[in-house]
Design a protein around this nucleic acid. Sequence first.
DNA 1: GCGACTTAGGGTTGACATGACTTTAAGGGG
DNA 2: CCCCTTAAAGTCATGTCAACCCTAAGTCGC
Lengths: 230, 230
Amino acid sequence: MTMQSAIDQRVSLAVSTVIFALRPHPESGLMTLWLPLVRRIREPYEGQWALPGGPLEADEDLAASARHTLERTTGLTPNYLEQLYAFGSLDRSPDDRVVSIVYWALVQPDEVARAVDGENVEWFVADELPPLAFDHTEIVDYALARLRAKITYTPIAHGFLPREFTLAELRAVHEAVLRTHLDPANFRRQALASKTLVPTGTCLQGTSHRPPALFRFEAGPPSNAPEERR
Amino acid sequence: MTMQSAIDQRVSLAVSTVIFALRPHPESGLMTLWLPLVRRIREPYEGQWALPGGPLEADEDLAASARHTLERTTGLTPNYLEQLYAFGSLDRSPDDRVVSIVYWALVQPDEVARAVDGENVEWFVADELPPLAFDHTEIVDYALARLRAKITYTPIAHGFLPREFTLAELRAVHEAVLRTHLDPANFRRQALASKTLVPTGTCLQGTSHRPPALFRFEAGPPSNAPEERR
DNA sequence: GCGACTTAGGGTTGACATGACTTTAAGGGG
DNA sequence: CCCCTTAAAGTCATGTCAACCCTAAGTCGC
């Protein structure tokens, strides 16, 4: 009945984040989903790869804690951040009892370019991850499912893109995330029908073809809900 | 970088649940959404209504904790339980820092019949709630939005129904939750198209009209994800 | 300047889902 | 036997969406 501290019973509370970014695959050249992992520097799972995360500080919001830890461990500033799920199984950490509130984030390409691989940070292709510490593999799978589901009915793709972009770039994001081919004409139609795109003039480029139009995302009405879901 | 205890910094972890049930409105007789609230017996917000909840015990799963607290405070056993969101704003509790992992649940009518209003438990119409303690009004609003969204694309309505039911009863659940009128014929079509309903013979009743067929929900393939969302 | 090439962007068609509505089936009561 | 009520099936117009084709607008090579 009491709302008192669970803390006396040795339950610790952590905030972790699954970070997604898009960049070309070094071999195939195809746009691919990548995510950064950090190497654990202590037991348990010392030396293994894991999601960036850390304990929730008493003076931090949940989202603020996610942002803070991200900045500290990977140097990245997310362009989109949303709570994913709270994981609290009894056996997810061998010794302690840890409840992790997990966020997922999208970062723009230029952010990725700045954040080079450090000694304890490395980028991996989302579908070819090494074995991860704790239940982090399951968490990443869940985050991937959420990302793939959500990109089909909300305009989160802008989280991967700079402020201005062409429809071909936007489509490339969808194709990379969903690993499918999308019809350019149909994609254009439904992208424009969503009323969240604003034309920003045409792209003045030097390649040998018709220059595409540029767009920006128009922020819809601000949502008061914690995060919009469906 | 450490996954160590946030507990030393006085962050307590609670698990609360928004419980939904369906029963006829005493005046209009219409099927309505109700939810039970518990009266707070200590500061802060002493005497005010709040969601049932309690601290997370070290030996309990998150969902198990929700179930446990539900049983203890309201005597209810939910027919459906899903994690809603983790609320962790700094100002949601006046004194302490509390992070609440909130679940939402559906209970069957017979369960509601058993759980009478106690001294500290009372049922309210979901759209006419009294002022609630903490940020619980916001939480209920969010849970309501999730319920209304999810009932349109998943067969959670069975959480409100006994094992066997008629299509008219199923439709009544949807109409009560969404507060709309649904065309019986069209509703039947898309309910049967979803392939989750199994006919169980016809209802042998004594009312003066054609007896309706009975159905059961067929459990689809088990989902490995924490909880299916979209 | 002219045709070839490449990508942008618009139009058409057919399959399928949805909403409004009509018709038939099955029971009970006067 | 007629009438009433609800279940359940059928009809039809409309809208949506994927697949496909076609034209527009640039650059490059000659």
